[in-house]
Design a binder for these strands. Structure first.
Length: 190
DNA sequence: CATGGGATTGACT
DNA sequence: GTCAATCCCATGC
């Protein structure tokens, strides 16, 4: 993975991240669900413009945007598009690959399919907190690597984004077809 | 300075 | 299916 990968239209990057690997320390998982957000549409945090909260989104591509959701959870995004454009891909679900026992400890759960099947779950499983906001996804501590061979020709499904009230009709959610590790099934349409 | 709303989750009816 | 937990921060007075 290189810097140019993220310096592209955010919807393309969201699709291409399916099958890629997120790693933090000994824990890692394959991305099976993602969503695109862009400052031109109101569901994106960057829609309000450049503020302290959105500064990371408008910064250089290839960085992590980590924010607190509902006062409780952290959610991980990959910042995309050129500096000055507020856009990012929300990582919504992973298929656990490495460090599974540590994930189980952090989550307090055994079931493999429940460890990373949601944006707040996977940050808990991988130990990703707000202190990693703005960190470099090419250098770490959190890194995203390209698709393993087995995931090279995976089928990607398209659907509507989940859990938002504004611009909810945009088909900007992507998922690995038939994955058992999604936050919700991808029933849908392009 | 006070207020209100989430890109969610897990527990409960 | 319903609902509370909990906190950052954008907005408005």
């Amino acid at each position: 993975m290189n810097a140019a990968f993220y310096d592209r239209p955010v919807v393309e990057v969201a699709r291409d991240l399916i099958g890629c690997v997120v790693r933090h320390g000994e824990c890692a998982g394959v991305i099976v669900e993602s969503e695109a957000y862009h400052d031109s549409e109101p569901a994106c945090h960057a829609f309000v413009g450049l503020t302290p909260r959105t500064a990371t989104l408008f910064g250089p591509p290839g960085r992590a945007y980590v924010y607190r959701s509902y006062g409780i959870h952290a959610c991980l995004n990959a910042v995309c598009e050129p500096e000055g454009v507020g856009a990012a891909v929300l990582i919504r679900a992973l298929e656990p690959v490495d460090g599974i026992e540590l994930m189980r400890e952090r989550r307090g759960l055994e079931r493999l399919e429940s460890l990373c099947s949601g944006p707040g779950k996977l940050t808990q499983a991988l130990g990703i907190g707000l202190e990693l906001n703005g960190s470099d996804l090419l250098r770490g501590p959190v890194v995203i690597a390209g698709r393993p061979r087995a995931w090279r020709d995976i089928q990607v499904a398209v659907s509507k984004r989940i859990g938002i009230t504004k611009a909810a009709e945009l088909p900007w959610r992507f998922s690995a077809a038939d994955s058992r590790f999604l936050s919700r099934p991808a029933l849908s349409r392009a």
